[in-house]
Design a protein around this nucleic acid. Sequence first.
DNA 1: GTTAGCACTCACACAAAACGAGTGCTAAAA
DNA 2: TTTTAGCACTCGTTTTGTGTGAGTGCTAAC
Lengths: 343, 343
Amino acid sequence: MLTERQKRILWAVIDDYIVSAEPVGSRTVSKKEGVGFSAATVRNEMADLEEMGYLEQPHTSAGRIPSQKGYRFYVDHLLTPQKWTPKDIMAIHQMFSQKIDHVEQAIQHTSNILSQLTNYMTICLGPRVFIDKLKHLQVVPLSDRSAVSIAVTDRGHVQQQRITIPENVSFSTIERLVNLLNDRLKGVPLSKLKTFVARELTSELKRHIDHYENTLELLDQILHIQSEERIYTSGTTKMLEQPEFQDVEKMKMLLDFLEEDDRIIQLLEPSTNGIQVRIGDEIHIEEVNHCSIITASYMIDGEPVGTIGVLGPTRMNYRKVISLIDILSQIFSKQLNSMYEGK
Amino acid sequence: MLTERQKRILWAVIDDYIVSAEPVGSRTVSKKEGVGFSAATVRNEMADLEEMGYLEQPHTSAGRIPSQKGYRFYVDHLLTPQKWTPKDIMAIHQMFSQKIDHVEQAIQHTSNILSQLTNYMTICLGPRVFIDKLKHLQVVPLSDRSAVSIAVTDRGHVQQQRITIPENVSFSTIERLVNLLNDRLKGVPLSKLKTFVARELTSELKRHIDHYENTLELLDQILHIQSEERIYTSGTTKMLEQPEFQDVEKMKMLLDFLEEDDRIIQLLEPSTNGIQVRIGDEIHIEEVNHCSIITASYMIDGEPVGTIGVLGPTRMNYRKVISLIDILSQIFSKQLNSMYEGK
DNA sequence: GTTAGCACTCACACAAAACGAGTGCTAAAA
DNA sequence: TTTTAGCACTCGTTTTGTGTGAGTGCTAAC
């Protein structure tokens, strides 16, 4: 366990390193507010902290920088929540006052604000449509053989796909099929449509639809709804302002990673309820080894449906980002709920 | 006018600089295939070419690099079209064989292929939905006061927006309104919906809809369809591989620019029919002053509806890119048309 | 236990020197 | 008259050497 003095010194090192990005020496620490010991004492303690793995030394004659373990301890035990004045809160709310009539717009806008306020890059995940429930199904024919199938959910999301009509299926059959589906599938979550039909509706469909076997392929197409979670990013270039990304190689790695949508989803998905802080290795993705990511879920009807996250160097301003992401995710949730107003 | 020898030397300089990115000296040129003159002769000619503005010299004791004027002359007069073997063509077609059932997917896929083959960044503009004609209109109520309005076009694009229902408008009125609109607006281009209604339908609507004035706001919302041209990019990191973007400042500028969607649209929009090559300043956008962009339109029913483009340093391989973008835009157009098969 | 003092380490900044690719000019060769 | 070989010169780049200073660990005194 760390002594009170060690904690204070660790705190001082991190607090300084976060803004300077330079190894912190004993003299600097000793002069810091809240540290009343001489440089020599600090040196001794820092040597101990290094031995315990909380600090690192780039080379013998340099100051110390926090290790990943150091950051973790800092976040878990040394962080005091950021205090906001009512004026700050007002200012933030002000930024959300813009009129918005698209959910997509709202997410992008929130992402922009977050990136602007933190000066780090933000990545957001659009709402999971798959847990929404079916409200309305429609097939619009375009030609003899092609049509568009549209599914509207209870939260107003619209999922569409282009389908081809099997040769021996008539328009009237399609209409009857869609009507039946609309009647029976209302309220079923998109994710369960297929299994629901297979389990509960097969016999009924067989009874009501002529040549049921011919429509099977069509049915499959109609119910084949992709999840398609959209990714929203902001402030990619903020990364380039960080000294740790002056190296072109590192930046390339990061950008390459950011082009792979599925891996970004993987990065943001695991976010449980509340705010999550993952530091360096803890992210388990090599490309962002030297980054930290702070994520929060946003809610609709009290249910987490999407994620907003801030990506920055491990040397990021945890205090500021954590409190900002907390406030913003709440404001955004409220905004969303008012858009969905009682379904 | 340039002599034959000068042309050959200019060609040699550019041809070399395109791969080396280093100033080209007289000795290098003289040893090049197709150039039979001594280094001294080449030196004299290069001095002339510089005076005429086709070449530049970074500093006295360095070789020459092409100027923008030089590139322009190269593209306009010295470029021989790339010859593809049937095998190459086959290989390219092979890349398109993947099954695709979303237009968006198809564009992204084409963009990826283009970026992969050229090793430059690609930017594509999704199809302009605004010229599509209305096929079907639908309003799905979500709650007492909110609904989703959906417009399906003849090419199968689905545009949606969330709308709020004015207090004194009933569901049945909405239904009647939508039915009427569906009946009268079929075949009208999205871009002209509003003016068409204002001009041709006002009196009829007044006649058929009770409390017509109350529905005005609703009508406006239903017909308020955003154009929303989507942008697809690939291989942003290919830029980082170019020596001219090793400078972090330059890369930051470019990335900042790429986050501004409207400016990208402006960058790609003007593409007239056929292939367009814009070099450096000719783009008229400061952030891409040191880049060239090659664009082509893709077609649906013989009508240009979107753009695919390659962005690279001015020192890009024009020959390769021009011919690739030519082939790919054609293949992609065909693929799209088969997806839209006869509407 | 804490602190002042001191010798030692090592990255970094800077200047001087060596290098070399490429030029322009001149004079000889074709 | 045109082309080419030769040569002195230029100037950015690389290499080498040296000084500087921030920071350390250790020791001895407080």
